[in-house]
């Protein structure tokens, strides 16, 4: 069975946070999960590789990037949007 975008994003985040995917809550922030700046760029890289998309994320201005990382749910939505656009 193919995994949904959300499941795959959660798996990527879980791997960075060193926890099980079922422990990744959608309202958790990266800080809650103990993911630092390096963990974040690694996760962004994994997302790009998994979905073959280009994530508009600049580590200097994470809040201004067109990629919302405020919590797990927002990252999932952002990736879903990118995947949908990539299919156009």
């Amino acid at each position: 069975m193919t995994k949904s975008v959300a499941e795959q994003v959660i798996a990527i985040i879980a791997e960075q946070a060193l926890i099980e995917p079922e422990d990744v809550k959608r309202d958790a922030t990266l800080e809650d999960l103990g993911i630092d700046s390096l963990g974040l760029v690694e996760a962004v890289f994994a997302i790009e590789e998994t979905f073959d998309v280009s994530v508009p994320f600049n580590a200097n201005a994470p809040m201004e990037s067109d990629f919302d990382i405020s919590d797990v749910g927002s990252i999932i939505s952002a990736v879903e949007k990118l995947v949908a656009t990539a299919g156009d």
């Binding site: 760029v41 962004v44 890289f45 994320f57 600049n58 580590a59 200097n60 201005a61 201004e64």
Partner: peptide, 20 residues
């Protein structure tokens, strides 16, 4: 590029609009 700390448009040290 992988580290995502490079600016695409210019180097603006200390300026609030710096981006890498």
């Amino acid at each position: 590029e992988g580290l995502r700390v490079l600016s695409k448009d210019g180097c603006r040290p200390f300026s609030a609009n710096r981006n890498g």
